[in-house]
Design a protein around this nucleic acid. Structure first.
Lengths: 235, 235
DNA sequence: CACAAAATTATTAAGCAATTATAAAGATTT
DNA sequence: AAATCTTTATAATTGCTTAATAATTTTGTG
């Protein structure tokens, strides 16, 4: 689970997004979909992505701005998607920090080919990344690279879903996530209608972390909304 | 013959390879040439080399991957060769496990100078390190050079596959290897489709190390993925 | 404000599918 | 012939989901 590469898709056309998402998931990627530039930016900040696929024609925050903004903070490959218009030449000549440019309509196999090519190249550059180990002031220590979790120095054995859940929460301390958000992110599916899968997994996490719903040290219940991780990174 | 230092050259351009090979042989080295990354890897596994010279632009398996793969199993100096491009600066900053970086076209005398320098340093390192014996905080001791394994002081007799499996895992503590990765590395074949060869050998290893799947002290099962070695090197 | 009703979350346990462990029988190699 | 490796078959285990129930918090009403 954790070794899947994460792709952020920012595309306002839901039907296109659906097709692309499904396809990429079948290819083995971990995919998050945002329908607006603003949402895309929020998602980008929330998790660690390996690649972004951005439509330039977007509501709220346009793709150009999003690209530039992402590029300010990250070196991940950005692929721009655009409908074929007369302004093509302009766009392609722009310095948005984008790594590739694809016109709609595109073939899915070409898209995946380009994506995998960019990811391959990116992987090389990323090897310089030093070990990402976070220690929080609540006694929790997380080694994101090796997917290891320690509570007061002791290793805790977590399952794939539990890991993914905790990682998402712990990467964004104090930020409240709705159960739907958590479900979409971790389970890669839309609408958890009524099922309490997330709740059960939070319970599992809490048990293993020796946490308790009422006196939460790590994962706090936000009533009527969802959950949040409490704890600050040391240093 | 036997005291000649062995260099592995991985370079797809035959004419360049020829020139470099000839030159290095004249300098007194024992040189093997591989034209693809895959071939290079096979050669590397087959013999014991003192240095590798790898072109990053390679067919089949790229030079980056090869570097990383070699570094998983060995400490020999790796020199990367690359055509001069705009992305040079990025590449040179990379931590691929490479020790040096040379741009094409290069002068033969400079190449040999760098090679001999790295070999000298490596020789010194090998001498000080004399016997590369690692002792882990879980009671395991491994003499990589003599291929000996001790559990709490007692020698354990391992088979060839078991040794290679353990060495790969133990050289990279806490890093999770998928069963496919293990199969590719140790068995030198692609896709283990469905066969449980790896599982059986892990079982064998565990039995001899007096380890147990549930309370793993040395080799831990990572569910749905593969295995990892747990234990830190002493000192 | 008290108190019940409604909504939400916590907890527990069972069933299922997928994965891994184990044992033992064939191949193969030495 | 003996040791090692691979295959095969079966057992055991794990993790995920669902469902049912308990506990908790909020809301509504007089």
């Amino acid at each position: 689970m954790g070794n899947k590469e994460k792709i952020l898709i920012v595309e306002d056309d839901a039907s296109i997004a659906r097709i692309v998402c499904d396809h990429l998931r079948k290819e083995g990627y971990f995919v998050t979909w945002a329908s607006t530039g603003k949402e895309g930016w929020e998602d980008f900040k929330t998790d660690t992505y390996d690649l972004a696929l951005v439509d330039i024609m977007l509501p709220e925050m346009d793709g150009f701005t999003l690209c530039k903004t992402i590029r300010l903070e990250s070196d991940i490959p950005i692929l721009i998607v655009s409908a074929k218009t007369e302004s093509d030449s302009k766009i392609s000549g722009l310095d948005l920090g984008a790594d590739d440019y694809i016109t709609k309509p595109f073939r899915l196999d070409e898209l995946t080919a380009r994506i995998s090519s960019h990811l391959r190249r990116y992987r090389r550059y990323m090897q310089t990344d030093e070990a990402k180990i976070h220690e929080y002031n609540n006694g929790l220590k997380i080694d994101f690279d090796n997917e290891l979790v320690y509570v007061n120095g002791e290793t805790v054995q977590l399952t794939a879903k539990e890991l993914e859940l905790l990682f998402l929460l712990a990467k964004n301390p104090y930020q409240t996530f709705s159960k739907s958000e958590l479900y979409e992110h971790v389970w890669q599916q839309e609408d958890l209608n009524g099922n309490n899968t997330v709740t059960v997994h939070v319970k599992g996490l809490r048990t293993k972390l020796k946490d308790d719903a009422k006196t939460a040290k790590y994962i706090q219940t936000v009533w009527g909304v969802g959950y949040r991780f409490i704890g600050e990174m040391k240093q």
